[in-house]
Every structure is written in C-alpha cells, then in structure tokens.
C-alpha cells in the first residue's frame, strides 16, 4: 500500500490543461479529459525537473489513468469498450465527482 496519495483506485480525475510550461510527460490529447484511476505506481522523480538538469525532487506520485477512447477522439472508429491507459503524475490531476462535471 502506497501512503499519502491524493487519489485512490476508482477515483475519477480530470487532467489539467497546460498545467506546467516546458517539458512535461502529459500529452495534449488527454489534457482536459476525465478518466478513472486504475493503478497507483508510487513515487517517481518529477520529469519536469529532471529535463532541466535537476534531481526531480520532490518526487511525484505516478498513477495509471484509464480513458474511454470515445471520450478522447472525435469519431473514434472502434467499439465503446476500447480504452486508453496512460501514466500521469499527481500534480496534473484534479478531482471530479462525475464524468461530465464542468
């Protein structure tokens, strides 16, 4: 069990938009989208710091978040049960209570 995490498996989260400037590991196509936390991987160095020669501290909690493909892409051609799972750091995520909360 990993302690002091803001989110748990099953939580709905929305990915912040343009949350940091410069190098980040959060692709545009998930920014602003809502998904579900499906794994909590623990603490890892922050790549946004490491990209510029720092040690990546403080560490960030890394999660795996699951999105419905039909929520990510307009006119997604596959069936609605297709999903995309992506690894995202905690500071990019915010809590939402429902999938379509504005």
């Amino acid at each position: 069990m990993i302690e002091n995490t803001k989110f748990q498996i099953g939580d709905l989260v929305r990915v912040r938009v343009n949350h940091t400037s410069g190098h980040c590991r959060t692709p545009q196509f998930v920014q602003g989208k809502t998904g579900e936390v499906v794994a909590v991987f623990g603490q890892f160095p922050n790549p946004e710091q490491r990209a510029y020669g720092s040690n990546g501290l403080p560490h960030q909690i890394l999660y795996q978040v699951c999105f419905d493909q039909t929520d990510l892409w307009v006119n997604y051609s596959g069936p609605e049960q297709d999903t995309l799972r992506i690894d995202l750091f905690e500071h990019w995520l915010e809590s939402v209570s429902t999938k379509h909360e504005v």
Partner: peptide
C-alpha cells in the same frame, strides 16, 4: 473482433 476490447497503454513515464 469488436467484442474484444482494445486497451492501448501509453507509456509516458517510468513504467
């Protein structure tokens, strides 16, 4: 087939 869900994993970090 469509009844098999396709799950794409985007490996964006340390996994």
């Amino acid at each position: 087939p469509n009844d098999v869900a396709v799950r794409v994993h985007d490996s964006t970090a340390d996994i």
